[in-house]
Design a binder for these strands. Structure first.
Length: 291
RNA sequence: GCGUCGGUGGUAGAGUGGUCAAAUACAACAGACUGUAAAUCUGUCGGCCUUAGGCCUACGAAGGUUCGAAUCCUUCCCGACGCA
């Protein structure tokens, strides 16, 4: 039996992924699984550029609004949920379309990555956070010399997580990748950088427009009211921490670059530019051919 | 017009005779990524030479003092403030 096929649509922010995904879904009887690390949260709508009901055009969208922003969501959870969504969709005889810009999440779902079964330990993290990089490295070296040697020794977040894992499992297991059970058709969307910048600018301005459900600032107000503190807001991304139009535009552009460094490594991605309308047809054809 | 303070790399801003191609921050460029991933972290960042290193051009402009100047002196240009 041949493997089930799954479409993946990825790309930098503001390249038009969501729109394309809906179009493709209509053609192939698809259902969309979002791969966005922040759109999983309720209440983060404007700042994350979450698709609105009208734009969905009746296509089912999954993994949007699955947790409250006060709770932390993680890749491992994403993988679990994503895998089960894929199964459900396939069972219905439809085609799953993974669509989003969070490379880490996409890889978790498409590369058969197996994460160590160690949930975050908030208490331990609090203690470790107070320690210096040197101290943390020392602790990790004691627990797992191998991981200590190849870890980024200046990255506190990583050091803490490594210790967290090693404390439970004795060491940090080597990352294992099992052969994926599906065939992924990966479509990457890109735009020439000047056009991308313009689109980002336009999008950010729209975010701040108060006619847009009160705008981003109102969204932040609501989040604060629901007792999301400012440290958490910062974690949720730059749009949510003292934003100004200029700042958000700049940081979006920087973010887009970071996204690209991630995607560049994946040689399975077939890239398309969306700067011309007729390219939609090209992509459609490419996908229909593969399915 | 007189007086005071100031003019530093893409920007902001330290440096006030040698250790200065010049702290730091930002931007830019490249990259990493084992449960925070729009997060977190790293490298490069005047030009040229293949790295060690070397050479050249640079701290408003032109001169000067000095073995040596972003730093001191003179004049000029520009800016801010004060007095007229």
């Amino acid at each position: 039996m041949s493997k089930a096929k799954i479409i993946v649509i990825l790309g930098q922010t503001a390249t038009g992924k969501s729109g394309l995904a809906v179009k493709i879904a209509k053609k192939v009887k698809g259902e969309i699984i979002s791969a966005d690390s922040r759109q999983v949260y309720t209440g983060l709508d404007i700042g994350t550029g979450k698709i609105i009901k009208k734009e969905m055009k009746g296509i089912p969208h999954h993994l949007l609004d699955v947790v409250k922003p006060k709770n932390k969501f993680t890749v491992a959870e994403y993988k679990r949920l994503g895998d089960s969504k894929i199964q459900e969709i396939l069972k219905r005889g439809n085609i799953p379309i993974i669509c989003g810009g969070t490379g880490f999440y996409i890889d978790a779902l498409t590369k058969g990555v197996v994460f160590p079964e160690v949930p975050p330990n908030i208490k331990l993290r609090k203690i470790l956070e107070k320690k210096s990089l040197e101290e943390l490295l020392k602790i990790l070296t004691k627990l797992d010399k191998v991981r200590a040697e190849n870890i980024d020794t200046k990255n506190k977040v990583r050091l803490i997580r490594a210790i967290e894992i090693a404390k439970i499992l004795g060491k940090v297991p080597k990352i294992t990748e099992v052969l994926p059970q599906y065939t992924f058709i990966k479509i990457g969307l890109y735009l020439p950088s000047d056009i991308l910048k313009k689109k980002i600018e336009k999008r950010v301005k729209e975010m701040f427009n108060t006619k847009n459900h009160g705008g981003l600032l109102n969204e932040i107000k609501k989040l604060k009211k629901s007792r999301v503190n400012s440290k958490r807001l910062k974690e949720l991304g730059f749009e949510y921490y003292n934003p100004t139009i200029e700042k958000v535009v700049l940081e979006s552009i920087q973010y887009a670059k970071r996204q690209m460094t991630w995607f560049k490594r994946d040689k399975e991605i077939k890239w398309f530019s969306l700067d011309k309308k007729e390219n939609y047809k090209k992509i459609e054809k490419y996908i229909l051919n593969k399915i």
